[in-house]
Design a binder for these strands. Structure first.
Lengths: 93, 93
DNA sequence: TGATTTTACGTGGACCGTAATAATG
DNA sequence: CATTATTACGGTCCACGTAAAATCA
């Protein structure tokens, strides 16, 4: 999770990582948590956006069109938060 | 909270509202929750960003420079989520 | 059968509202 | 003293990890 550790971004972080490596196991390793946690986070995102983000094809998973759209915005969101964190820190109070 | 009702955006929503009306009481009314909840949410944001977002000047509160910076990004974030929600919904799966 | 994902489930922590306290004018 | 913000506190809900089950190669 790097510098940014805001809890409410965890799901987005999990989604981005999963979209990148396409493996729940690998995603869990990278984010230092269990596979079931990743599964749940992705399920919650799918419910919140009422979308299917990944196709489960046997062992392989595949990003859907809807997933691609979310991925694009997810990256923007994390960038935005990182940028905000830096600029807030350097803002003279 | 309008169409977007993702729980993890509540704090940002509270912050934007408070920055607009500069009253915890009024913010709580608008968001249909209690004042202590707003207080806590703002405190958590201040802790997460390690920043003072509002100056407490007696009964009046005032947005700080850091608060102004966050406000700018907070609005971008909510817009981004709204936009993502719409585009995901219209994406052919 | 081995590897991976999902479901079940119990516990610990977070969140919210009520009540009480503090602070301002 | 009236109004507003904060703190204390208790109950509920959510999230995570472990364990078990399911699924595929």
């Amino acid at each position: 999770m790097g510098v940014i550790c805001l809890k409410w971004l965890d799901k987005i972080e999990a989604f981005i990582t999963l979209a990148e490596c396409l493996s729940f196991t690998e995603t869990a390793k990278r984010l230092y948590c269990s596979q079931p946690t990743i599964t749940t986070q992705i399920q919650q995102l799918e419910e919140q956006f009422q979308a299917t983000l990944f196709l489960r094809l046997g062992k392989k998973i595949e990003l859907t069109k809807q997933g691609e759209v979310l991925l694009e915005y997810a990256k923007k969101m994390t960038c935005l938060v990182e940028e905000a964190t830096v600029k807030i820190k350097t803002a003279d109070q």
